[in-house]
Each structure stands twice: as structure tokens, then as C-alpha cells.
């Protein structure tokens, strides 16, 4: 559970960016507009009262057919204050998002994974390429319109040499 002061502080700094604050099962979620997210994350990282210095997790969720289709979810943690905070950024299909690799190095592989699994592109990422599947793989497996079992699932994959 995040203290109310935290949220007020972020809201004071970015009055127009925060779309919604949700609480479920003692977990606080900030829904933030995509425009200023790098500034928001830098503030969350640097401010001594917040100091979200640890990026626990970063992933994307596909909500097709809802609009906007995607949500990128950041799980932040403060090792000083023992607090967690979830930040969600709604994103239209085809839009890209600023990379937070410059804030947390941990984001490097997470953003690659999100790109690999959902096709969400991150701007200014140093090395945005597939990580769990291979170069040349077609489609984005964690999108809801990607089949769980393809037509050729029992045929061995033989790459061209």
C-alpha cells in the first residue's frame, strides 16, 4: 500500500499526466498518459521521498478489442522505503513509447521482451530486437490474436541454411 502523500506528490508535479489511481488488494496503480512518461519515471526515481530505484518488472498486456489496445505495466519498488507501485500506460496499436532504459538498466531486457512478445516499440532503446524468439520470427506470441496452437505445431521447424 502506498501512502497518499506519494500520489499527491506525483500529481502535484504532473497534474495532467495522471489519468487514474486505482487500489485493489492493497496495491496502488497509477495510470499515466504516454506523453510524459520518461519525465514521470525520472521523477519517481530521483525524488528522495519516492526513490523508486528498483524496477521489479515491466510487461505489456493486450486488451484487444478494447481501445487503446495495449497497456504497458511497470512494477516499481523502493528499496529505501519498502514500497511497491504499479504504473500503467495505455497505448494504441502502432504507437511507440519512450524507453526507460536510461533510468533503470533493468528495462533493457524487459523492453526487448515486451517488443518480442507484443510488438510494442520503445523509442531510444539501445538494442531493440527479439530476445526469446529468433530474428525473423513472424508475429507477436502474446497478442490475443496469435494462435496458441498453429496449423504446423507438430511439424519440426527447419531454418533455411
Amino acid at each position: 500500500m502506498v501512502a497518499k502523500g506519494w500520489i499527491d506528490k506525483v500529481r502535484g508535479q504532473f497534474p495532467t499526466s495522471i489519468l487514474k489511481v486505482e487500489t485493489f488488494r492493497d496495491e496502488t496503480t497509477l495510470v499515466v498518459k504516454k506523453d510524459q512518461i520518461l519525465e514521470v519515471f525520472k521523477f519517481l526515481f530521483q525524488d528522495p521521498d519516492l526513490s523508486c530505484d528498483y524496477l521489479t518488472d515491466l510487461c505489456g498486456v493486450d486488451y484487444k478489442p478494447r481501445k487503446p489496445r495495449f497497456e504497458v505495466v511497470y512494477h516499481l519498488c523502493s528499496t529505501k522505503h519498502d514500497r511497491r507501485l504499479r504504473v500503467k500506460v495505455p497505448l494504441e496499436e502502432g504507437n511507440s513509447l519512450a524507453s526507460v532504459e536510461s533510468v533503470w538498466k533493468a528495462a533493457n531486457w524487459y523492453e526487448r521482451e515486451t517488443y518480442d512478445m507484443l510488438g510494442i516499440r520503445f523509442e531510444n532503446h539501445p538494442d531493440l530486437k527479439r530476445i526469446l524468439t529468433w530474428e525473423g520470427f513472424e508475429g507477436y506470441p502474446l497478442r490475443k490474436d496469435f494462435p496458441v496452437k498453429g496449423k504446423d505445431f507438430d511439424k519440426p521447424f527447419v531454418p533455411e541454411l
Binding site: R130, I131, L132, T133, W134, P141, L142, F146, V148
Partner: peptide, 13 residues
């Protein structure tokens, strides 16, 4: 990495 990717997250859905 990725040689052992089995799609656990997709399968869980």
C-alpha cells in the same frame, strides 16, 4: 537467450 522458450505465459492463458 530463448533457446528453451516454451511459451509458458501464453499457455497459462
Amino acid at each position: 537467450v530463448g533457446h528453451l522458450h516454451r511459451g509458458v505465459e501464453k499457455l497459462s492463458e
